[in-house]
Design a protein around this nucleic acid. Sequence first.
DNA 1: GTAACTGCAAAATATTTGCATCCTT
DNA 2: AAGGATGCAAATATTTTGCAGTTAC
Lengths: 140, 140
Amino acid sequence: MQQTIIDTLKRNQLSITDSRKKILELFAKANGALAHFDIEHQSGAEFDRVTIYRTLQTFVEKGIIHTIPSADNSIRYALCKEDCAGGHHHDDHVHFMCDSCGTTYCLDHVNVPQLDLPKGFRAVQTDVVVSGVCSKCAGA
Amino acid sequence: MQQTIIDTLKRNQLSITDSRKKILELFAKANGALAHFDIEHQSGAEFDRVTIYRTLQTFVEKGIIHTIPSADNSIRYALCKEDCAGGHHHDDHVHFMCDSCGTTYCLDHVNVPQLDLPKGFRAVQTDVVVSGVCSKCAGA
DNA sequence: GTAACTGCAAAATATTTGCATCCTT
DNA sequence: AAGGATGCAAATATTTTGCAGTTAC
């Protein structure tokens, strides 16, 4: 896994630093999306808040992670699939936030359907965020 | 319009105050959604920031307005249709944010399609936020 | 008159910026 | 060695809370 992480950084012309490796690793291990808050607290708080802000911003710009909109003032981030490198995101998948356990999933296999927008509206990006109960919580 | 606004407040057992009337009026006049920031600045800043926070929260709880998730850490609010009173929202419509003029639209006539979620996932609410160029900006 | 609402002050939290130092290449 | 990345300090901005005074009913 270390190798994959280093590859990802290299591929995006980013220097290999401890904080970047560590944050990428957190995403790789996470079974869902992470908010700034999660990274700051789950990581054992090994680095500065500011470094987290800057690292997340860099990763978004490079297309390594993408943002997931939310209605609670806490943006979540998740790893992008290969095809959205270079900042050109094509995250045409659905996101799911579990109301019970709080996990945010990327449902990669649920495609965003084509929408019939009113005349004159041109869609560039479509975000779908579903909230409800995930399979883990429903099963329990 | 004043009457409609007062009716709405009464229907939700809220006392009729200047700030509530004014904020509701702003929503009625807006051709889209408003963020806290917009209300504070577009209104001529007639009332306290805190009052705006509390008023918006009250309106959301009563189901007068609903939140629109976004990826830029600034929640937007829009008037609910009649059927989501009492906090039980059924905002099964699509939201559109124009990258050019920044306006957020509620596309009431574009329905959110039914999604095929993985086994075990139960959807309670679905938010669709499309970004791109609106008809006004495309026409210009 | 009473309960609810507002405004002010202040605390708590979150985000951004500048700069000196350290690390990667 | 040079450029970029980090950490610290501090400036900003945002959100929450407590309380006293005011307003709606």
